[in-house]
Measured scan of single mutants.
Amino acid sequence: DEDSERELEKLRKNNASKEEIKEVLKRLGFSEDEAKKLAEKAG
Rank of each mutant, 00 (worst) to 15 (best):
K13P: 02
R6S: 11
G29F: 00
E19R: 04
K22R: 11
K18E: 12
N15P: 02
E2Y: 13
G29R: 01
V24F: 15
L25H: 00
E20P: 00
A39T: 06
E40Q: 07
R27I: 04
E32D: 10
L38T: 04
R12H: 06
S17F: 05
L28C: 14
G29P: 00
A16Y: 08
L25P: 00
E19G: 03
F30Q: 01
E5W: 15
K22D: 06
L8T: 03
E7S: 08
V24W: 14
A39H: 01
K10S: 07
L38G: 02
L8S: 01
N15D: 04
E40K: 03
L25W: 00
L28G: 01
E20L: 08
S31N: 06
L8H: 01
E32N: 03
E32G: 02
E19W: 08
A16L: 11
E9G: 08
E23R: 09
E9V: 08
K13E: 06
L38I: 12
L25Y: 06
E34W: 06
R12A: 04
S17M: 06
L11S: 02
K10P: 01
K41I: 12
K22W: 14
K37I: 11
I21S: 01
E23D: 08
S4D: 08
K41L: 13
F30M: 06
D33M: 06
D1N: 12
E19Y: 03
I21T: 01
R27C: 11
E2K: 11
E5L: 14
L25G: 00
S17W: 05
V24R: 09
L28W: 04
E23K: 09
K13T: 07
K41Q: 13
L28E: 01
V24H: 11
E20C: 13
L11Y: 04
E32S: 03
E19A: 08
F30Y: 11
F30A: 01
D1K: 14
K22C: 15
S17C: 14
K22N: 06
A42N: 13
E5I: 14
S31I: 02
K10D: 05
A42W: 15
D3Q: 10
E19F: 04
K37V: 11
A42V: 13
G43S: 12
K13G: 06
S31A: 05
R6H: 08
R27P: 00
I21F: 06
K22A: 12
A39V: 10
R6F: 09
E7Y: 12
S4G: 10
R27V: 03
E7T: 14
E23Y: 00
A39N: 02
K18D: 08
L11R: 04
L38F: 09
V24Y: 15
A42Y: 15
R6D: 08
G43V: 14
L28A: 03
K36Q: 14
A16N: 02
N14P: 03
S31C: 07
K18A: 13
I21Y: 06
E34F: 06
R27T: 04
L28F: 05
E20V: 08
A39C: 14
K10R: 14
L11H: 02
E7A: 14
E19Q: 08
E19T: 05
E32H: 03
E2P: 12
R27L: 09
A35H: 02
K26H: 04
N14Q: 12
E34D: 10
K41Y: 12
K37F: 09
R12L: 14
E34K: 04
L11W: 02
L38W: 13
E2I: 14
A16Q: 03
K36V: 13
A16H: 04
A42F: 15
E7V: 15
E23I: 05
S4V: 15
N14S: 11
